[in-house]
């Protein structure tokens, strides 16, 4: 097993997370701003999550043709739930007094979101991104079934050829990657939370 496969997997994960945030964050914010649509949005992302990852990828490949970007778009759909959910709930949970004060100062809704509400909800939003990242590391294994490469290739190969060494080396790399992401992101979140604290007081 060479490093390129790990890098390939890493590429899938990082791209997926970036796109998930780009798509999921605005959806979460919209769901928060428009309570009427909130239920439908949260429900839809939950439904997406009930479709088996493999099937979702299979369908997208058929629709868009094989290739890394298609794999990534499938994985994005699959990781929307925690990001959208945490964004929406995190914003809802921001203290009402603070929201009111923002209004009282005559800030526009957009200004309030950007300068007050999103910063305060950020730890929760970031937790959603972290969950999505760690899950994606695992789910990206399926990429190989639809020609996307990554560590899944090693694992499948191991299972097919009954080569336990191959399976274990693939799995361990995967676990390490997941744990590293997890630890790194928890650390970043703590740092950010501390920074916000210092700024406020």
């Amino acid at each position: 097993m060479d490093a390129s496969i790990i890098l390939e997997h890493l590429y899938l994960v990082v791209m997926t997370v970036i796109f998930s945030v780009v798509v999921g964050l605005p959806i979460g914010v919209l769901a928060y701003l428009k309570p009427a649509g909130r239920k439908i949005v949260l429900w839809s992302v939950e439904i997406l999550q009930t479709i088996p990852a493999l099937a979702l990828l299979g369908l997208i490949i058929i629709a868009l043709g094989p290739g890394k970007m298609t794999v990534i778009s499938g994985l994005v759909l699959y990781s929307l739930l925690p990001i959208v959910h945490n964004t929406c709930v995190g914003l809802e949970n921001v203290d009402n007094g603070i929201k009111e004060a923002g209004k009282g100062m005559g800030l526009t809704q957009l200004d309030r979101l950007i300068s007050v509400e999103i910063p305060l909800a950020f730890p929760m939003i970031f937790t959603g991104i972290r969950i999505a990242t760690v899950t994606t590391v695992g789910v990206a294994v399926f990429a190989t079934s639809v020609g996307g490469g990554g560590l899944g290739k090693i694992i499948y190969q191991g299972i097919r050829t009954q080569n336990i060494n191959l399976i274990v080396s693939g799995t361990v790399s995967l676990m390490i990657m997941a744990v590293l992401f997890d630890v790194l992101m928890i650390w970043i979140n703590r740092r950010l939370a501390k920074g916000a604290h210092n700024k406020a007081f």
């Binding site: 695992g138 694992i155 499948y156 997941a178 744990v179």
Partner: peptide
Amino acid sequence: VFQTIPGIVFIG
């Protein structure tokens, strides 16, 4: 940490 092992590995 064990939870991060994909299901496919266990089944395999």
